[in-house]
Design a protein around this nucleic acid. Structure first.
Lengths: 134, 134
DNA sequence: CATTCCGTGCAACTGAATTGCAAATTGAGT
DNA sequence: ACTCAATTTGCAATTCAGTTGCACGGAATG
């Protein structure tokens, strides 16, 4: 339940925060700030902005840059242990603008050159989705 | 030489365009619009914006979203054949903000589910670079 | 040489996101 | 339950990157 998750992350579970969390877990794909705003008309975008920053600091969500104008946010499914990414691939449709989670395609993190320390990965494939293709 | 490249792409090689091209090939990492602007103080940002759009349409450059506030652009090294990405990995340092090209690490494009058509790939690893780590 | 086209640079605009601040809400202590 | 301090919320104003409108100027064309 949403309240639990927030408490675990040390975040006070207020009404707005629960709503935002719920909207994100209801969606089957990463949401932009604007999309969250549309889904939750009672919540101001400034609150969404601050809440997402908070969630991110708490390791509850991560960011995806899919090539659309705005950044998208997605709940972490993995246990959050510093490294904050769910390692699956995303697909961004250049035609309809939607972003899909390709849960079955894992991201493989290659061995990095000496001295680099990896923290997260952004792996997005752009192209045309089945619906737009037909 | 820069002029050649532009002509090949069907782009008239004007002074500003050659300067921008040169700045990009001089850099060993992808540049943001702002960085190009800093390097070329005589060229207006509107010109840079329009030029980058032109280069992109001509398949000369591609985009990288590395998690920093702004998008970065990089010259394509590969022959440009519709699919416009150089398939190597990038590393973005969360500390100093620089973006490195990991030329030796190829991006492997996985087989996609039925009906998806891939066009380009954005593969960026974020973390801490060797210099910031010490 | 005249005319048209295109590139350039300034200024104004756009849109996403953030910040300042006052009002509302929360929850801790009594 | 009641009060008070601290936090959260929502509005308005701001910021900032990037883009667009437009007029000037130089290059290409006939």
């Amino acid at each position: 339940m949403e309240e639990e998750l927030l408490r675990e992350a040390g975040i006070k579970p207020t009404a707005a925060r629960i709503l935002i969390m719920r909207a994100m877990s209801a969606a089957d794909h990463p949401l932009s700030m604007a999309e969250i705003g549309d889904a939750l008309e009672t919540v101001d975008k400034s609150v969404i902005s601050r809440t997402l920053a908070l969630f991110r600091a708490g390791g509850l969500i991560h960011i995806i840059q899919d090539g659309s104008e705005s950044v998208r946010y997605e709940l972490c499914r993995c246990s959050h242990a510093g490294d904050d990414e769910d390692l699956h691939t995303h697909f961004h449709c250049e035609c309809c603008g939607r972003t899909f989670c390709l849960k079955d395609i894992p991201v493989h993190v290659p061995p990095l050159p000496e001295g680099f320390r990896a923290h997260s990965v952004n792996y997005v494939i752009s192209g045309i989705c089945p619906e737009c293709l037909r």
